[in-house]
């Protein structure tokens, strides 16, 4: 009887990139504010990574519309109780923060570092919003499973943080860490995020009980248990703990976390629509 919205890969990718963008920006803002000079490169990479990703997010959202040329109609109103309305605004506002923070990392603005840090603290809130509202959006529908999942937003947020940190760590590992060992700190923070995500996921399943059926059994179960829980969370955590900071293992673990983040959104969005 119920109709699904037929959201496909573009929306899954949007959820995924939105999570990374929010997570990377938040990591950058924290690193910028409390990390001191050692974490300067973390801040730079985080801010700069969030910018193209949020731009891509906007494009994906527009391309998925039935009438893309009417995307500005979203700006006709702001509904505080409507995740879709708030989300459309948040992409725009977060994009602005991302742009300003990125620009302020360079040459002529370097003496304004204090201002940049303050801006980062505010923009971080929008980053959190971008990473988590997509989960709340799914739960504020009439669909079974989505509407019964109380921790969808909380889970997406933890996943956004872990994938954002994984992406930043991967870029640091590939382009050179620079002085100060910021990479080790991002990995350290990512471990916390992954542990929080695992706990959230366990609570998420426990609260859902039998309503979790679309993901824990059937067609999507191998992807959920194998791709997300095992390869996307447990294995990278183990790799990080036993790897003792070895760069190659760290990079492998980051790639796995990113893959897990994508699978999380894919499974959540697609399982009840197919």
């Amino acid at each position: 009887m119920l109709k699904t919205p037929e959201w496909g890969m573009m929306i899954v990718l949007y959820f995924f990139f939105g999570g990374i963008a929010g997570g990377a920006y938040f990591t950058a803002a924290i690193a910028d504010n409390v990390g001191g000079r050692r974490a300067a490169r973390v801040a730079l990479v985080g801010y700069l990574l969030s910018l193209p990703l949020v731009a891509l997010c906007g494009l994906l959202l527009i391309a998925d519309l039935g009438v893309p040329s009417r995307f500005l109609n979203m700006m006709r109103m702001l509904k505080f109780w409507d995740p879709m309305s708030l989300g459309a605004w948040a992409v725009g506002v977060f994009g602005l923060f991302s742009f300003v923070s990125s620009v302020m990392c360079f040459g002529p603005f370097e003496h304004l570092a204090t201002l940049r840090r303050r801006i980062g603290l505010v923009g971080m809130l929008f980053g959190f919003f971008l990473a988590s509202y997509t989960g709340v959006l799914l739960s504020a529908t009439a669909q079974p499973f989505w509407s019964e999942a109380r921790l969808m937003g909380a889970l997406f947020l933890a996943s956004g943080a872990s994938t954002g940190m994984a992406a930043v760590s991967l870029i640091l590992a590939l382009t050179g860490d620079g002085p100060g060992h910021g990479l080790a700190r991002v990995k350290h923070a990512d471990r916390y995020s992954m542990i929080i995500e695992l706990v959230m996921l366990a609570l998420f399943l426990a609260l859902l009980g039998s309503a979790a059926k679309p993901i824990v059994s059937g067609h999507f179960a191998p992807l959920f248990w194998g791709g997300l829980v095992a390869l996307g969370l447990v294995v990278p955590l183990v790799l990080d703990f036993v790897g003792h900071g070895r760069k190659a293992l760290g990079a492998v673990s980051a790639v796995l976390v990113l893959m897990g983040g994508f699978i999380l959104r894919y499974v959540m969005v697609m399982s009840i629509q197919s």
């Binding site: 037929e6 959201w7 519309l65 039935g66 009438v67 009417r70 995307f71």
Partner: peptide, 9 residues
């Protein structure tokens, strides 16, 4: 309407 399909769900 711009076809976001949130109403459908």
């Amino acid at each position: 309407c711009n076809g976001c399909r949130y109403c459908v769900s």
